[in-house]
Simulated assay, not measured.
Amino acid sequence: MKIQKEIVLPGPGQSFKLFSPSLRNNFYWHYHPEYELVYVEATTGIRHVGQHISSYMDSDLVLIGSNIPHLNFDYGVKTEYRQIVVQLKENFLGDAFKETPELTNIQRMFDRAYLGLSFSGNTKKIVAEKLRYMQGLSHFEQLLHLLEIFQILATSDEVEELNEQDTSIKLFFDDKIRMGTIYKYIHANYNEKPDVNTVAASVHLSTAAFCRYFKRQTKMTFTDFVNQYRITQAKTLLLKDVSVSEACYEVGFESLSHFNKLFKKLTGENPSVFKKRHN
């Protein structure tokens, strides 16, 4: 359950790794020196990169810098999904990025990747198509397409920095909190009444110390995080043609009006509108 270092091994004759992992039933809180580009298509899922925690809808495209702890993007996904991952060393082309003026924008993007970069809109759509197409190409053609993808990302303004500061693993080595324990407890109890005292005890902290730790790490209170997790699960239920009221009570809310208000606050629309738009 504690943080793990992933060993990344490119395939024979390749300078990077292109693959489609499937780990939905595993809590894989990990890091690696390699940069990682993740594209995932799923009804809804969790995005946890460094100290940033949020949910995504339909799809997500994120570039993660070296040694930044992150959770597998398919963790806990309950519906069908597809995932494509590219992993590469910063110097996978030697000093080409630093010495080739045409690649300056890409180098600048890599320099910002330690914050975690999330791409949206048309950028995400175009890159997703290219990643799918890459999988059937020769190694050399894959390399050319990857450079084109990086140039698209590097010149896009449809990008969000997920963290405000460096969250690389050097800041996590002395952290004895097992994030897996926290996630596991919330996943098992979000539809009941998750008890902050219980989860604090499970990671050997007093309740006050746990609340300070959790707020510092996630920028959210424990209650806010649980509610966001509940709303994420409610989205999945609504897409399965469950009624709004049934989804509300099934994920643990006792008040329909509170559920509607919180759903709109976190997603920008009422659950009934969300359900109608997607169904």
Rank of each mutant, 00 (worst) to 15 (best):
M1T: 08
K5E: 14
V8H: 03
Q14P: 00
F16D: 05
L18S: 06
F19H: 12
S22T: 13
S22N: 10
L23Y: 11
N26M: 14
N26P: 00
F27G: 03
W29K: 04
H30I: 12
V38L: 07
A42L: 06
T43G: 08
H52T: 10
S54R: 00
S55T: 06
S59G: 03
G65M: 07
P69M: 10
E80C: 04
V86M: 01
L93N: 06
D95V: 03
Q107H: 12
Q107C: 11
G116L: 13
L117W: 05
F119V: 10
K124W: 05
K124I: 11
K124L: 13
V127W: 06
L131F: 01
L131R: 01
L137D: 02
S138W: 03
F140T: 14
L147A: 03
E148T: 14
F150V: 02
Q151W: 05
A154G: 05
K170E: 13
F173T: 08
I182H: 03
I186G: 02
N191M: 13
K193A: 12
D195G: 10
V196A: 08
V199S: 12
A200Q: 05
L205K: 15
F210A: 09
R212N: 09
F214C: 02
Q217S: 11
Q217C: 06
T218E: 03
K219S: 11
T221I: 13
T232M: 15
T236A: 13
L237G: 01
L238S: 06
D241P: 00
S245V: 15
E246L: 07
Y249W: 07
F259T: 01
P271L: 11
K275E: 06
H278M: 07
